[in-house]
């Protein structure tokens, strides 16, 4: 099934304007974490906080709403979030952790739950996993090159960056620059090219921007835990909700010579397939070169 197994899919936007003021898309991640913290479902969350270097995220253990809010927004470079999981449990004594991560980070956590090597007393402390959609990530040097050399803005002036509609966009001090996504391909992290997971198929809840208009998020609930938490949040009025049907592809036939326009879940499905096909191709090429490729990484 495309997008892995899931229970429900919907479009959401947080109602709290403080959250949507700082969040990347519908603020689903930030609003859910704050809600779960309020309700005692979690006592901390592993997120991508701000580091000293501009736009280089720092894996952060957030235990307050302020810390969760401060980590909102996408940083398009690697945030090794799993690296602090033991610190959260050992040093901070947290017992109900949420982990926010890209699909690969979510499966790292799920593997750790099954094979906790060097992770004594960790598996039962993982209370919630929130996955964010991911097509690829960039090294920090790559991201800086994209911003400074291609977009021609100083990295420390950037207030938001975004990928969508085939463009890499940055907002910086009164300026908006967009470059074709094609220009960024060579800065993609090599390890991403065997990744066949776009929609964080192994998380309790996964969310991303593809499939919904600006300011909204596409959200999957995958586990009973994820579904129950979201149902409670909805009942408590945390989110505005729409059905994914509202964003369906246009039914009118495409203009002659044009490809049909895809939106909503159709678009997401198409991109999911593209990602899986590309991963398979890379896998086969690397294998043919005699490189080690992770068994079972394709699914």
């Amino acid at each position: 099934m495309p997008f892995g197994t899931y229970k429900e899919v919907m479009a959401l936007k947080a109602k709290d304007s403080k959250i949507t003021g700082v969040s990347q898309d519908g603020g689903v991640v930030t609003a859910l974490l704050c809600y779960a913290l309020d309700k005692g479902v979690i006592d901390g969350a592993l997120v991508a906080g701000k580091g000293e270097t501009p736009w280089l995220p720092k894996p952060t253990i957030a235990t307050t709403k302020e810390e969760i809010m401060a980590a909102a927004g996408t940083k398009y470079t690697i945030n090794p979030v799993v690296s602090v999981i033991k610190d959260a449990v050992r040093e901070q004594g947290l017992e109900k952790l949420a982990v926010v991560g890209t699909p690969c980070q979510i499966y790292a956590v799920q593997k750790m739950r099954l094979y906790p090597v060097g992770a004594r007393h960790i598996p039962d402390k993982i209370a919630l996993t929130i996955g964010i959609f991911c097509t690829e990530n960039f090294s920090y040097a790559g991201l800086r090159t994209i911003i400074e050399d291609h977009c021609k803005v100083p990295v420390d002036s950037v207030t938001k960056m975004e990928i969508g509609g085939g463009k890499f966009k940055v907002k910086a001090a009164g300026k908006e620059v967009a470059i074709p996504i094609k220009e960024t391909h060579k800065y993609e992290q090599e390890g991403c090219h065997v990744c066949s997971d776009l929609t964080a198929e192994f998380a309790d809840i996964s969310t991303g921007s593809i499939g919904t208009p600006e300011g909204w998020s596409t959200v999957f609930t995958r586990t009973t835990k994820g579904k129950d938490l979201l149902a409670k949040a909805l009942a408590d009025g945390i989110f505005e909700k729409k059905s994914m049907d509202e964003f369906k592809s246009p039914t009118a036939p495409p203009a002659p010579g044009k490809k049909p326009i895809k939106t909503g879940l159709d678009l997401l499905e198409q991109m999911d397939k593209q990602k899986k096909d590309k991963a398979k191709k890379t896998f086969d090429e690397r294998k043919a070169m005699g490189l080690f490729v992770t068994p079972e990484i394709l699914y």
């Binding site: 280089l56 894996p59 470079t77 690697i78 945030n79 090794p80 979030v81 799993v82 690296s83 602090v84 999981i85 033991k86 991560g101 890209t102 690969c104 980070q105 790292a108 593997k111 750790m112 090597v117 060097g118 992770a119 990530n137 090294s139 920090y140 040097a141 992290q189 090599e190 390890g191 991403c192 090219h193 065997v194 990744c195 690397r286 490189l291 080690f292 490729v293 992770t294």
Partner: peptide, 28 residues
């Protein structure tokens, strides 16, 4: 085994699992 085969994606699991904190994540 991992980086030379273009497989590392910077999750940081290795750093968490190390019992002696011999691993630090630097630029992912």
């Amino acid at each position: 085994r991992i980086i030379e085969n273009s497989l590392c994606m910077g999750c940081g699991t290795c750093a968490a699992s190390c019992p002696t904190r011999a691993i630090e994540m630097v630029y992912g």
